[in-house]
């Protein structure tokens, strides 16, 4: 799901030319996915390292940050992650419920440009992972295996002045998402 969401964010927020994206169907809704091998590999490597943290409940947030030319964040798509409570409903019911919620969330991302101001030209992106205490050790193994090292993010990449909070979707599986939009990105 995060992979689909990242592709769609990069398309909707015009970080990359629309020519590299192709329409696909995920969760029964049309989405735009990049067909650029290098970009796709980068996203896959990133998420491959994030996955064990999510599975062990070591990742508090996964944040897709859109940055301007000076590497200041102008938008943050925040995926707050917490373990779902132990559920008594059947896995089939849960799966279809989660699928419906993911579909709704994908649709929200598709139309989020309506509530966001335009980004300045020349933006790039990064993915930040907010880890819980003692989480980094779990990531160390996978980043060595994948030869995809992670470092502590710089303050300037993390700090955003007076962000405007735009809630997107709260799911009953406790995955909460919102966008931070920088108010003066065009100044």
């Amino acid at each position: 799901f995060l992979e689909v969401a990242i592709h769609l964010i990069l398309y909707v927020r015009e970080v990359y030319p629309s020519g590299i994206f192709q329409k696909r169907k995920k969760y029964n809704v049309p989405v735009q996915m990049s067909c650029h091998p290098e970009l796709n590999q980068y996203i896959q490597d990133t998420l491959h390292c994030v996955k064990p943290l999510i599975e062990k409940n070591d990742a508090e947030k996964v944040v897709v940050v859109i940055m301007d030319k000076e590497h200041h964040p102008v938008e943050r798509f925040v995926f707050e992650i917490s373990q779902p409570p132990l559920l008594s409903i059947s896995s089939d019911t849960l799966l279809s419920h989660v699928e419906q919620l993911l579909r709704a969330f994908i649709l929200k991302i598709s139309v989020c440009d309506a509530v966001l101001s335009n980004n300045p030209p020349g933006c790039s992106f990064t993915v930040l992972v907010h880890t819980r205490e003692a989480a980094t050790r779990n990531m160390e193994k996978v980043q060595v295996i994948k030869d995809f090292p992670w470092i502590v993010a710089d303050e300037q990449e993390v700090h955003m002045q007076e962000p405007r909070l735009i809630p997107l979707k709260t799911m009953t599986s406790d995955i909460v998402k919102y966008i931070h939009d920088c108010i003066d990105k065009e100044s």
């Binding site: 650029h36 970009l39 993010a153």
Partner: peptide, 27 residues
Amino acid sequence: GGGGAHILKPLMSPPSREEILSTLLDL
């Protein structure tokens, strides 16, 4: 090390818009 909560990012940057555009022109 590796004890506390951190905000981590990949060391490598994703391909830039310019890099992607230049590979598109090569095709």
